[in-house]
Design a protein around this nucleic acid. Structure first.
Lengths: 150, 150
DNA sequence: AAACAATATGTTATGTTATAACATATATAA
DNA sequence: TTATATATGTTATAACATAACATATTGTTT
C-alpha cells in the first residue's frame, strides 16, 4: 500500500467499517478483538501474532490464546488476512466486498498490497472447476522486490 | 496425484532425475539429503519436517537442523516444494523443466496435485509486471475437497 | 428478576515448527 | 599438503500455535 498518504484516515475508515460489518452481522467486536484489529492496522505491513502479544499489555490476559482467538475471529469474518508464506496478519483493504484476492509482498521493505482481479479470479475458478474441486480456498502470494526498492 | 498407479516406479524416476540434476549442476546429493528426499517421495502426500525427523533414525544426527538443512537444499534446487498453507513438503513432479506451478490440495484425503499452466503463469507475470515487481516468487495453493472425496 | 444457555475470556501447560551459534568432519582446490 | 569451502553434529532456544479446563460475561427464556 504505497499510495497511502494519510494512514490515520486509512485506519479510521478500517475501524469504522469493521464496526459496521459487525453490527450488520450481529458479531461482537469486543475490546480485545478491537485492540488486535487496531494493532494490525497500525501500518500496511503484516504483523506477527507474537508482536501483537507484546504490544497488547494492559488489555486482556496478554497470553497467546487471547491473541489467537481474536485473530481467528477477525480472519473468519473477513476483517484480516493471514499471509501464509510469512506467518503474519494484515488488515483487509476491502471487507464486505470481495471474494478473492492476491498479495504483492516486498521482501525488502515488507510492504504488502492486496489486489483483486477478475481475470485472476476466473483463472482460479477454472482451475478448481477443471479439477472438480469444491469449497475452494485460494492462497496466492507474490513476493519480490517492489518498484521503490529496486 | 490420483493417477499414480505404480508409485515404486514413480519414486524410482524421481530419485533418478534428482541424481541426474545434481550431477549436472555439480550438487552433492549426500546420504542425508537423499534419505530426506526418499522419505518425502514415499507418497504423493505432503510430509511434515518433524515426521521426517522421526523417520530418519539411524542416518544423520536425527536432530532438527539436519532435517531442515536437507530440506533447504532440496527446496533451493527445485527438487521439492514447500506448501506454505500447511507447513509441509512435497516432491516436485517435474524438476528441471518448470518455472512456476500451483497446487491443488484436498482437505479431506490430503492428496496434492502439482499443476503447471501457461495461462496462470502469464497471469502472475502480468500482475508482477504491472506492479513493477522484480525477482518474484509465487505461492499459489488451491485447497478444497477433491472429486473423489465429494 | 432468576435461571439457563451461549459466547467470550482467563489460565496452565504443552505441542509444533524452525533457527542461531559454534564445533567438528569431509570434500575440493591450490 | 595445506588451505578453503562445504556439510554435518550438537546444544540451546526462538517463534508459532493449540488443547483442555475454569471462570466470567452476555443474551434469552421463564
Amino acid at each position: 500500500m504505497k499510495n497511502c498518504k494519510d494512514h490515520k484516515k486509512c485506519k479510521r475508515i478500517a475501524i469504522k467499517s469493521a464496526k459496521d460489518l459487525c453490527d450488520k452481522k450481529n458479531l461482537r467486536l469486543t475490546e480485545i478483538r478491537k485492540k488486535v484489529f487496531e494493532i494490525i492496522w497500525k501500518s500496511h505491513k503484516p504483523v506477527k501474532a507474537y508482536d501483537i502479544l507484546h504490544e497488547i499489555k494492559g488489555i486482556g490476559s496478554g497470553k497467546p490464546p487471547t491473541v489467537y482467538r481474536a485473530l481467528n475471529f477477525l480472519l473468519q469474518n473477513g476483517l484480516i488476512h493471514k499471509l501464509n508464506s510469512q506467518q503474519s496478519y494484515i488488515g483487509c483493504e476491502h471487507p464486505n466486498s470481495h471474494k478473492q484476492c492476491y498479495f504483492l509482498s516486498c521482501n525488502k521493505c515488507g510492504d504488502i498490497t492486496e489486489c483483486c482481479s477478475i481475470e485472476m479470479d476466473n483463472m482460479f475458478n477454472i482451475a478448481a472447476k477443471e479439477a472438480k474441486f469444491n469449497n475452494t480456498n485460494i492462497v496466492c502470494e507474490i513476493s519480490g522486490i517492489c518498484f521503490s526498492c529496486t
